Structure formats: structure tokens, C-alpha cells
Simulated scan of single mutants.
Amino acid sequence: MEGRVSRRGALSRAWVSSLVVGGMLAFAPAASAGDQATAPKDYAQTALNIIPSGQPGGIPPPPGADTQAHMYDGLTPLFDNVTNSDLTQYFKSEKFGISTAGPGTTEAVPRPGVTIVRDSYDVPHVTATTHAGGVWAAGWIAAEDRGALLQQARYDARVAAIDAPGLDAVDLIASLKSFQPSQQTEDALAKQAGVLRRAGPEGKKVLKDIDTFVKGINDYLEAHGSTAAPFTRNDIFAFNALKDQFVGEGGGDEARRSQFLGGLQQRLGVRKGYSVFSDLRQNINKGSPRTVDGHFRYEHDPKKPGAPGSAVLDPGSFTPTPAVSASATHGVSQPAERPQASNEL
């Protein structure tokens, strides 16, 4: 899902909205100004994007849902001969406002101060007079454009929240299986509201935004006669846990690599072994080409070995143990391996 956000009004809490909407993984679309006359100044000389899966997320997909997929596929035969003109042909504008993707179609919404305009790609452009209006619109659009996925994911996402051994929430969603949460699970999720309250004023603002976002979802469901159970804070807490499980994938090889570092240090000495290990990682290579001037503090290693929290394992000292014993999972079918793809959800 895609778009950009603008509001006529307070902007100081934009980061709070990003916490709430970002917690929806790919479910909650961002938005942009639909009124060119009131849209904020866009400083981008060129802003382009393409979402091959398209904006519509209903089942069955409406006509034209594959428009962006065909555009993106036009790049494939060009391989390494893509020109500037190809970019504007096979990517669409992401500048504020409808731009060349008009004319827009204004959507009827029940909240004053919120305008949603759909461009020719069905991308929602939102203009809201208040911060709360923008957050509400994100919830409304999430229910409209990703309603089927929201319903499939809302309970399965709780598996990520409780970190159930041997289960993967993303696999459950992708395989269309359903997890039935217990009251104990719901009680554990509800504790997150207390965590936010204890975080002070900013935490309470996040909680308020969650409630506003949920209201946007539920208002859409009510307006369209849905019989689904209303969404709650717990659904958003679970979606955030799902995002963490999905985006946080990777790793799992730390113990083996730590043993490799330990072997280097035994053979070459602590400092030289650490230096060789860092060179092999190549996470910060001063000789790499750059497209942006300046430096960013990403993936910085401790300046010297032996920093707190960076224990090194002796080579051959670690034996992995399954989280769930074989006897405990006997007769239980395991989720099929998920195919690797970007923007899977």
C-alpha cells in the first residue's frame, strides 16, 4: 500500500502517527493531499513509485488492479538499459496531490474535516484538518483496502505477541489458518495499554492515536454493514507484534558466527582476530560507492573487543536445542516453508 501524508493543522505529532500506522505492517496505507490548491509544498524534484501488487486488496480484485504490475513488468526486458524516460513511463508520480494520475474521485466519509480522493490508480490521497482526522482516515482506508487481510491476520497475529513456541504468525496468515486466542492471551495483550500509560504524555498520545485508528476501521465496517467483531486495541498490539516478527526476520546464526570469531581470536589474538572478523563482515566499508554525502550511524560495531554484552563463544562449545521437543510436536503438521518475496503481505 502506498501514499503520502499531509494535514492542514498540527504536525508536531507526526511521529506518533507513524508508530500507530507503522504498526499495521503493510495493512495501513499512508495518504497524501488530494487538493492541489491546499497541498503543502513538495520539495522533491522527482518522486516516483510503483507497487506491483496494486492498491486494491479486496477479494476478488476489481478490474484494473493489475495495472501497476503490468507497468513494473515493462522494466524486466530492459535489464540494465533503463533510461530516465523509462522511469517516468513505468513508474508513477508520488508527488503530493493527484498530479498526472487524475482525475480524482472523492470518497464519501462520515467524518467532518477529512477528504479522501482516489486517483486513477485507486491510491487514496487524504487531506485532514486535524492530526486525529489523518489517523482516523488511515484506519478507514486500511479497512477498505486491506479488509480481508485484516480479518485473516487479527487473531493469527496474537501468536507473534505471545511468542508461541513452534508457531509462526506469518505462516499461519499465509496458509489461511486460524488461531483462536484464549482469555489469557487477551489479558496479556491488554497489558500493553498500561505500558503506554506509564510511558508518560507521549505514551498516552500513542494510545489515543490507536483508539482513533481503531475507530476509523470500525466506522468503515459499520458503514458497510460488516458482521465482523469490532476491532480493539488488542488487535493493534497484535499487529505490532506481527510487524516485529516479519520485519525482524533474519539472524539465527549468531552462535556459529560467535564461535568463528572465537576461533580467529584464539589463532590471531584478541584484537587482530576481531579486526579480521570485522573486515569479513563488510558492514561498514569506507571504499564502497555512495550516492549521498555524509555518514549515518548504522550497524556500528563496538570500537574494541570485549564490550559489555558481546560475549564470544569458544569454538565447538555450542549445540543448538529445538525450542519444542520432537515428542511434543509428534502428529502435528508443520507450516509449509514460506516462499521468499518482498511485500508478501
Rank of each mutant, 00 (worst) to 15 (best):
G34A: 02
S17W: 14
K286Q: 07
F79D: 06
G74P: 03
K191S: 10
S275H: 12
G203Y: 07
G309D: 02
S18W: 08
P201F: 12
V276G: 01
S226C: 05
Q245W: 01
N285A: 02
A229F: 02
R267N: 06
R154T: 03
A31D: 05
K286I: 08
F27A: 13
S99E: 15
A101Q: 13
R198K: 14
D66T: 03
A228Q: 10
R267V: 13
N218V: 00
P289K: 11
G306T: 03
F296D: 04
G113H: 15
L207P: 01
S258H: 07
Q45L: 09
L87S: 05
M71I: 03
D187I: 01
A341S: 13
P52L: 03
D187Y: 01
V312S: 01
V292T: 13
S288T: 04
D119A: 06
T321D: 04
A31V: 09
S85V: 06
Q184V: 05
A193S: 11
F318Y: 15
E94L: 14
T83G: 03
D86F: 11
D219Y: 10
P302T: 02
G3F: 13
G3K: 10
I50M: 12
S175D: 14
Y298N: 04
P61L: 04
P305A: 00
A255F: 10
T38E: 08
